[in-house]
Amino acid sequence: MMLTGMHVAIIGGDARQLEVIRKLVELDAKLSLVGFDQLAHHFTGATKLQIDEVDFADLDAIILPVHGTTLEGKVNTVFSHEQIPFTEEMLVKTPKHCTVYSGISNSYLDNLMKKVGRKYVQLFERDDVAIYNSIPTAEGTIMIVIQHTDFTIHGSRVAVLGFGRIGMTVARTFAALGAKVKVGARRSEHLARITEMGLTPFHLNDLEKEVQDIDICINTIPHLIVTASVIAKMPAHTLIVDLASKPGGTDFRYAEKRGVKAILAPGLPGVVAPKTAGQIIANVLSQLLYADLQKRKGNA
């Protein structure tokens, strides 16, 4: 599986993008790197450029960071002091087949991609990426719990809210460490699967009742579910770890008022295991780019 002849621009990002660069260089893609001025490492086949030096008319793909852009249309990068603009003027110069990849999206990116009519892939919407990412997420959650409690996970009472791709891995991991895990969900098939896994299921409608005896609450649901009335029912020593994307699903203001420790911890893979998280993205990206290349060869 080689990407010879494919020209890809990688714009901004963090340590995870280094794994993407390594992988694509290995597969013989031609890379233009923007926002990597302070990166000491030199990659053969990859050229560091300023954004205005990029030949957009020659690009087959553009890879944005996991977080995409800001709402103002700027790309953040840890390898440069400056944010990088990502605009309609740039994108309209790209060939019709050019695909834009990012981890997640926002209203700016959604509107921009609709306007220019280019294919747009959000990697974190994919089941495979989310499931692979749930592994470093679970490990990072263990790290946070150990740092912020004075009791062992073994024997502690843990409520996991949500039984999606992350919730399932987190619940299984904490159970494997000897915690007494119960999982809140709504769908009947999720409640059945939780039972099958040897964990205790409960319906999220009963959340206020179910939190009355817990030590740790781990939320994966990206809307307000750990409300003031839920927090009011928790023991004072309960630790809340919210893994949902910002702003999370917890009333942090009320938690602070009541003295319940609540931590918002989105994006743990990039924090606790950037190398692994980068390899996950790189592997999926290289498959998608290769499929695009084959499709174009077939249409040529």
Rank of each mutant, 00 (worst) to 15 (best):
residue 149 T to Y: 03
residue 149 T to K: 03
residue 150 D to S: 12
residue 151 F to P: 04
residue 153 I to A: 03
residue 154 H to W: 08
residue 156 S to M: 06
residue 156 S to N: 07
residue 156 S to K: 01
residue 157 R to T: 01
residue 158 V to P: 03
residue 159 A to H: 09
residue 159 A to T: 15
residue 160 V to Y: 05
residue 160 V to P: 14
residue 161 L to A: 11
residue 163 F to E: 06
residue 164 G to T: 10
residue 165 R to G: 06
residue 166 I to W: 04
residue 167 G to Q: 08
residue 168 M to P: 00
residue 168 M to C: 11
residue 169 T to M: 15
residue 170 V to K: 07
residue 170 V to A: 06
residue 170 V to M: 13
residue 171 A to M: 12
residue 172 R to F: 07
residue 174 F to G: 01
residue 175 A to T: 04
residue 175 A to G: 12
residue 176 A to Y: 04
residue 177 L to D: 02
residue 178 G to A: 04
residue 178 G to M: 05
residue 178 G to D: 12
residue 181 V to E: 10
residue 182 K to M: 14
residue 183 V to D: 08
residue 183 V to K: 05
residue 184 G to E: 09
residue 185 A to Y: 02
residue 186 R to M: 13
residue 186 R to S: 05
residue 186 R to L: 12
residue 186 R to T: 04
residue 186 R to V: 03
residue 187 R to E: 15
residue 188 S to C: 01
residue 189 E to Y: 13
residue 190 H to F: 06
residue 190 H to Y: 12
residue 191 L to F: 09
residue 192 A to F: 02
residue 193 R to G: 00
residue 193 R to H: 13
residue 193 R to F: 13
residue 195 T to R: 07
residue 195 T to V: 00
residue 196 E to C: 02
residue 196 E to D: 13
residue 196 E to H: 11
residue 197 M to Y: 13
residue 198 G to E: 10
residue 198 G to L: 14
residue 199 L to I: 14
residue 200 T to L: 09
residue 201 P to G: 00
residue 202 F to I: 08
residue 202 F to G: 12
residue 203 H to N: 15
residue 203 H to K: 11
residue 203 H to A: 02
residue 203 H to V: 14
residue 204 L to Y: 10
residue 204 L to R: 05
residue 205 N to H: 15
residue 205 N to M: 14
residue 207 L to G: 10
residue 208 E to Q: 13
residue 209 K to E: 15
residue 212 Q to N: 04
residue 213 D to A: 14
residue 215 D to F: 01
residue 216 I to V: 15
residue 216 I to A: 08
residue 217 C to G: 10
residue 218 I to A: 04
residue 221 I to C: 09
residue 224 L to S: 03
residue 224 L to Q: 11
residue 224 L to I: 06
residue 225 I to E: 03
residue 225 I to C: 05
residue 225 I to K: 00
residue 226 V to T: 13
residue 227 T to N: 04
residue 227 T to A: 11
residue 227 T to C: 08
residue 227 T to D: 10
residue 227 T to I: 08
residue 230 V to M: 07
residue 230 V to F: 05
residue 230 V to H: 08
residue 232 A to C: 02
residue 232 A to D: 14
residue 233 K to N: 14
residue 236 A to H: 05
residue 236 A to Y: 02
residue 237 H to T: 02
residue 237 H to W: 05
residue 237 H to I: 05
residue 238 T to Q: 03
residue 239 L to A: 06
residue 239 L to M: 05
residue 239 L to C: 02
residue 242 D to P: 07
residue 244 A to T: 02
residue 244 A to N: 04
residue 245 S to P: 03
residue 246 K to R: 12
residue 246 K to W: 00
residue 248 G to K: 07
residue 249 G to L: 01
residue 250 T to W: 00
residue 252 F to V: 08
residue 252 F to Q: 09
residue 253 R to W: 00
residue 254 Y to C: 09
residue 254 Y to P: 06
residue 254 Y to G: 02
residue 255 A to N: 04
residue 255 A to M: 01
residue 257 K to I: 08
residue 258 R to V: 14
residue 258 R to S: 14
residue 259 G to D: 04
residue 261 K to H: 15
residue 261 K to W: 03
residue 261 K to L: 15
residue 262 A to Q: 04
residue 262 A to I: 01
residue 262 A to F: 03
residue 263 I to W: 12
residue 263 I to F: 09
residue 266 P to V: 07
residue 266 P to R: 05
residue 267 G to L: 06
residue 267 G to V: 00
residue 269 P to F: 03
residue 270 G to R: 01
residue 271 V to E: 08
residue 276 T to C: 07
residue 276 T to I: 13
residue 276 T to E: 08
